[in-house]
Design a protein around this nucleic acid. Structure first.
Lengths: 149, 149
DNA sequence: CTTCATGCAAACCGTTTGCAAAGGC
DNA sequence: GCCTTTGCAAACGGTTTGCATGAAG
């Protein structure tokens, strides 16, 4: 699953939307693109090289990217949000969250929810546009140690 | 889908766990049982008759009930949590959240995720214990008005 | 040169906590 | 009467915001 040039894609998209391409924005996009799993604001902030952005700017940029549909805002019951590239820039997937160590794994599974979404539309009149599906449990490692944190 | 005596069930359960049955706890359980959809802490607090509980007590009671597995803690991207009776006291279901009016509908659908959970275990070694599945879109009413808030 | 984005600090708001008083059992 | 739970108020932590400065186009 190679990510080709996603930074450039996002930057191009920002330009077409009349947003300025600043160093903080570039860096934040880079960090998000490099991440193997959803990041919190704090984590994004910490992974910025040479502090090119204030914490408040990270918040502002991330919120902007969410509104533009570049990022997805996720929640794993940690009292802070996590963010990852949306399906526009990254393949659709779900998450498996370990209740022992908190690890988040990406689950790429042929998504079987299409038929469910159609049934919901027929039965409840609700037009599904997107869904969030997360699995909670115990990861392989914690299961083997059986006494992780 | 009739809820028979769920309050009494929960109260009985608390007793077996050595927790005291106080007026605040009884009232909070009643409010949660009466609710047709997940409630926020503020909503629970407001629906208490004659203020038998402080806000802090609502937080404490709700957190306790979550830890005991009586309640599920849910998140709908509103920056506050919502709570509902867990599957131990209420049938398993999913939610459909309208992005226009914020309405939350319960979706009772034969859950097709069992097979997915088994596949995840085989392929990723992750032992799924529970899942959260939420659908985002536009509800029937907002779709017909087509210009809701 | 104009406009938008940033940095800094203060404000915000949902949630948690310490402690003395009250209420179950 | 003992011990848990409550109410109150203060603290906490993630997030947002106002405003003057600075950088992009």
């Amino acid at each position: 699953m190679v990510k080709i040039n996603v930074c450039a894609q996002v930057e191009e998209f920002l330009k077409t939307q009349q947003y300025k391409l600043t160093t903080p924005r570039r860096e934040i996009i880079r960090v998000l693109n490099d991440a193997p799993k959803p990041l919190s604001i704090q984590e994004i902030y910490q992974q910025l090289n040479e502090r090119p952005a204030d914490l408040a700017s990270v918040y502002r940029t991330v919120n902007l990217l969410c509104e533009l549909g570049v990022l997805l805002k996720l929640e794993f019951h940690e009292k802070r949000y996590r963010y990852e590239l949306s399906e526009a820039f990254s393949p659709h997937h779900h998450h498996a969250i370990c209740r022992k160590c908190g690890a988040i794994e990406n689950i790429f599974d042929e998504c079987i929810l299409q038929t469910v979404e159609e049934r919901i539309k027929r039965q409840a009149g609700f037009h599904v546009e997107s869904h969030i599906l997360e699995f909670y449990g115990v990861c392989e490692e914690c299961a083997s140690h059986s006494a992780a944190q």
